[in-house]
Computed example of a mutant assay.
Amino acid sequence: MGKVVLVTGVARQLGGRFVRRIQRDPEVDRVVAVDAVRPEHHLGGADFVQADIRQPTIARVLAESGADTVVHLDVTGTPLGGGRPSLKETNVIGTMQLLGACQKSPNIRRLVVKSSTNVYGSASRDPAVFTESTPPKSLPSGGFAKDTVEVEGYVRGFARRRPDVAVCVLRFANILGPAADSPLASYFALPVLPTVFGYDPRLQFVHEDDVIDVLRIGAHEPRRGTLNSGTFNIAGDGVLLLSQCSRRLGRPTVPLLLPAVTWAGSLMRTLGMSDFSPEQIRLLTHGRVVATDQMRETLGFTPKYSTAETFADFVRSRGPGLLPPETVARAVDRIAALPVPGSGHVPAHGAD
């Protein structure tokens, strides 16, 4: 008999894509797709079960499905409805309920959890590159970043209690692509990008196609010479500066002092324009770069898209910005050449 795979978070585009893809694998006999909301997209031949993972009923769903593999994708920073409180409950309480159900199930052999490089936070004293074992200089204090820290803590506890289960935690960099639905994608969709004056952070992206491929690797038995259990950073090669992103989008930036950016972020959240959270402001101030050696050497995965190629595909899907890229480039260069008050130095900026 083949594998029975239970997938959470299938009402989102990423979850729906993974469900449609994993059921085509010859090793998979059945896919059980779970979400509290009925998806608007099709799920192929998967069996959809409408269930809220925050409720104890998920244990019955798991038991009745006979699943031996669980892929937990219902950990996200963008609510489908209900706002931030409901999202936090799904991320944290939902994960606790799901892990409790997995702990009781004698059938479970593999658990794959979608996490985020947000667990490292973003701070001025951060190392140039985070590895999977690098502790954050300051733990995230709220939002999705704090959720992911809590989720990973519960997953580590589960792994200790069920050493017979192969547990794979995938820490994704910012996911972008034509169907990307994330706070950062919403930020890049703004007609004008507010930035923190004097900072040009380094950013990493991972393409949604690569996300699907690496989730498949985590859900299957490892190939010879690889080990698909453990914690892995997942990101495309290279980095982009925020100024380079604005050039390629053709969108002008408005450099603001940090208090003004914080105020603007609060206003945009209130108006529903973008989830410009404090953690995203820290990312757009200090940036974040992670090492992906373990992804390649241990997990055996090489992304098809680099960070730059991922962003280029995202830009193509969104259409041109307000201004031609060359006009934005000249404006960004002039802004970047301005001295930072009181610092005595010129902010760094990158050329395409």
Rank of each mutant, 00 (worst) to 15 (best):
E89K: 09
P163R: 01
N228C: 11
V61D: 03
G265F: 06
E297D: 12
E279N: 06
G177L: 02
M268H: 04
T76L: 10
P191K: 02
V5T: 13
R125S: 15
R110P: 01
M1A: 12
V328T: 01
G350N: 11
L80G: 15
R60I: 02
F205Y: 08
D35C: 13
P163G: 02
Q294C: 05
A180F: 09
G250W: 06
A185M: 03
D352F: 03
P106W: 12
Y120V: 04
V32C: 07
G230D: 01
Q55R: 07
V315P: 01
T131M: 08
L249T: 07
F232I: 00
T57I: 15
E221L: 09
C245H: 14
T310I: 11
I212V: 13
P79K: 00
G153E: 10
A329T: 08
V261R: 13
F48W: 11
V92R: 05
P252F: 03
V169Q: 01
N233M: 02
V10P: 06
Q50K: 15
A312P: 02
L257A: 14
Q50R: 13
D29F: 13
P85G: 00
A235G: 01
G153F: 11
D210Y: 06
L283C: 11
R109N: 05
P324E: 07
L190P: 08
R296E: 06
A36F: 09
T310A: 10
A337I: 11
G77S: 15
I175K: 01
V206W: 04
V61F: 11
G94I: 01
S141N: 05
V165C: 06
R248E: 01
I234Q: 02
I175Q: 00
K137P: 00
G9T: 05
R20T: 05
R334I: 13
A145W: 13
V34T: 08
D25V: 14
I93S: 14
S229K: 10
R54F: 03
V113S: 01
Q23N: 13
V119W: 01
G83L: 10
G319C: 13
S243F: 10
A264D: 14
R296D: 08
R24V: 15
L227T: 10
L111K: 02
Q244N: 01
D25I: 14
L249Q: 06
D181T: 13
V19H: 13
L190R: 02
V7L: 09
L190M: 03
C102N: 06
P194V: 06
R318E: 04
H72N: 00
I212Q: 04
L98Q: 00
A145K: 00
G344P: 07
E27L: 08
T134S: 11
E326C: 12
Y305G: 05
R316G: 07
V28F: 07
F314L: 05
P222I: 10
L62T: 11
